[in-house]
């Protein structure tokens, strides 16, 4: 996959995040499209077959930087908060794919998305508490994070299995 294409899709997603995502709320939660995209790319990178590389690890990490930057640009949070949260989430996928989940199936995908979303939120909340101080969400944090996990699982599953259908692969094993 050309890096240029990945960057184009990322920037388009950032624009859609600010333009369309606010109107796709379910129980008050909007999908975090940039995070979902980067998470899908991460799962693809770490589990794609060796003979059919769609995205290299270098391209993935460049995408993480650009995704974080574009998310930070549109957010009212200080610069770097979302970038660092993305980095932590993708690193967790990298670690778990290399040390725990050798093969990818529906359940491992579900667990990876859950772990990545938790890491993302933990790092973001930690940064907000550390630097801004006050953290209020207006509703229970658990409820908000739970909805986000559900949203992410559904969308990542759709994207990942869509790619699988297009490129026709059935076996995904960890590339570590």
């Amino acid at each position: 996959m050309k890096l240029f294409f990945v960057i184009f899709v990322l920037l388009l997603t950032a624009i859609l995040q600010a333009g369309l995502a606010p109107f796709l709320k379910i129980f008050g939660n909007s999908p975090n499209l940039i995070f979902i995209l980067i998470l899908s790319l991460a799962v693809l990178t770490f589990y794609q077959p060796a003979d059919k590389i769609l995205i290299t690890e270098k391209q993935l990490w460049i995408s993480v930087i650009l995704a974080g930057l574009s998310a930070d640009l549109f957010s009212i949070l200080p610069m770097g908060f979302l970038s660092l949260s993305f980095l932590g989430a993708i690193y967790s996928v990298s670690w778990f794919s290399g040390n725990v989940f050798g093969r990818l199936n529906f359940w491992t995908l579900l667990i990876l998305v859950l772990i990545a979303t938790l890491f993302y939120n933990l790092i973001l909340i930690g940064l907000i508490r550390l630097i801004i101080g006050e953290l209020t969400l207006g509703r229970p944090l658990f409820y908000s994070v739970f909805l986000e996990i559900v949203y992410n699982i559904i969308l990542v599953w759709l994207i990942f299995y869509g790619i699988k259908k297009i490129f026709g692969q059935n076996r995904y094993t960890s590339r570590h």
């Binding site: 995502a21 009212i76 949070l77 973001l124 969400l137």
Partner: peptide
């Protein structure tokens, strides 16, 4: 208004 950030903790308008 050309955008709205609605993700947790970062809500705002553009």
């Amino acid at each position: 208004v050309i955008g709205q950030n609605s993700v947790n903790f970062g809500q705002g308008l553009l």
